[in-house]
């Protein structure tokens, strides 16, 4: 049983908890990433979506205390020595960040930065490394790669810097790419290009992808499965189709309602009242209870756990929204969301 579970999933997080200076920000995350799958992680700022993966890869500063288990193909990463982690990071699991220009080195040429990654993770040197680097630059859509091999980061635009970051991340032929808000800092037309690129690369290389974003629209284009996080917990997990056609957690529903629509009649927006709770003074029960319209006395005292549902999704809510049955939905989801 343990064997099959280990081979089915590439990465398994179990009860992952993180605290900064005694303030707990991640309250036990259980998450599986299967080989080649595209998983989305959505939530507002401070919900712990980035911290989850920084903790999993041992990238948090020393003052953070991380407990729980992170397994890559059954091998424990949490608490393992630096040498082990360094083989995994960049080699098996690569990560790209929101702001490409601050992740790239401004005083080294682009070619050198990509060949450095190739030397570390694949042992390529000299001409072989250069040829491979040019292939990667081509693959991520940098036009005229040969001529631009020796240019510096300031000579590339924001969208191209993100492409170069992706090329560096691919240098180690990772099994999993974690993209942390990769398109947030980019313009709309460039964002569409990068999303398109990620989808294409994932199909070509067969790697798994974890796409972290606050933008439900971007996530639904790239991912098959989505986890919604709130205040350091996963509150709902399911396929894109399930979540988008019939969100059951009131927070997921609220996120959808809060997005202004581009078509149909102009309507007043439906915000979620209140603000995200401070991790220092988290409510005793469900963290979303103070902002929720379905709260009962029960919600205020006992935090719900993430439980599997009949339709395959997981849900952490004592009073979820009923499954939308055609024609009987309480507030019907606009039709085109279902396409």
């Amino acid at each position: 049983m343990a064997m099959t579970a280990a081979t089915a999933n590439l990465v398994e997080l179990r009860n992952l908890k993180v605290a900064f200076d005694g303030v707990q920000v991640l309250h036990g995350i259980d998450l599986d990433v299967a080989r080649g799958e595209a998983l989305g992680l959505v939530g507002e700022s401070g919900c712990g979506k980035s911290v989850t993966w920084l903790a999993a890869l041992g990238l948090l500063p020393g003052k953070a205390s991380v407990t729980g288990s992170v397994r890559l193909e059954g091998r424990e990463l949490c608490g393992s020595p630096r040498s082990t982690l360094e083989q995994v990071r960049g080699g098996r699991i690569a990560m790209i960040f929101q702001d490409p220009s601050s992740s790239l080195n401004p005083v080294l040429s682009i070619g050198r930065q990509i060949t450095e990654a190739l030397a570390i993770h694949r042992g390529l040197r000299g001409e072989a490394a250069k040829t491979e680097a040019l292939r990667l630059m081509d693959m991520v859509g940098i036009p005229d790669a040969r001529r631009r091999f020796d240019l510096y980061t300031h000579e590339f635009s924001g969208g191209q810097c993100q492409r170069l970051m992706i090329a560096m991340a691919l240098a180690g032929k990772p099994d999993l790419l974690i993209a942390d808000e990769p398109t947030t800092a980019l313009d709309a037309t460039i964002q569409a290009q990068i999303l398109d690129l990620l989808i294409r690369l994932q199909a070509e290389t067969g790697m798994a992808l974890v796409f972290i974003s606050h933008d439900l629209g971007a996530v639904s284009q790239v991912c098959e499965r989505v986890c919604v996080m709130y205040a350091g917990r996963i509150v709902e997990e399911g396929s894109v189709a399930q979540l988008f056609s019939s969100p059951r957690h009131p927070y997921t529903r609220g996120l959808f309602d809060a997005i202004p629509r581009i078509d149909g009649p102009r309507k007043r927006l439906i915000p979620i009242p209140g603000t995200v709770p401070n991790p220092k003074t988290l409510p005793q029960g469900c963290a979303f209870a103070p902002r929720c319209s379905r709260t009962t006395a029960f919600c205020e005292t006992s935090p719900p756990s993430l439980l599997p549902q009949k339709d395959g999704r997981k849900l952490a809510c004592a009073h979820p929204i009923e499954l939308a049955v055609a024609g009987k939905a309480e507030r019907k989801v606009p039709e085109d969301l279902l396409q």
Partner: peptide, 13 residues
């Protein structure tokens, strides 16, 4: 192009 590049929740690219 601007309208078209905008991700809409639930719609594929």
């Amino acid at each position: 192009a601007l309208v078209s590049s905008m991700p809409i929740p639930g719609k594929k690219l």
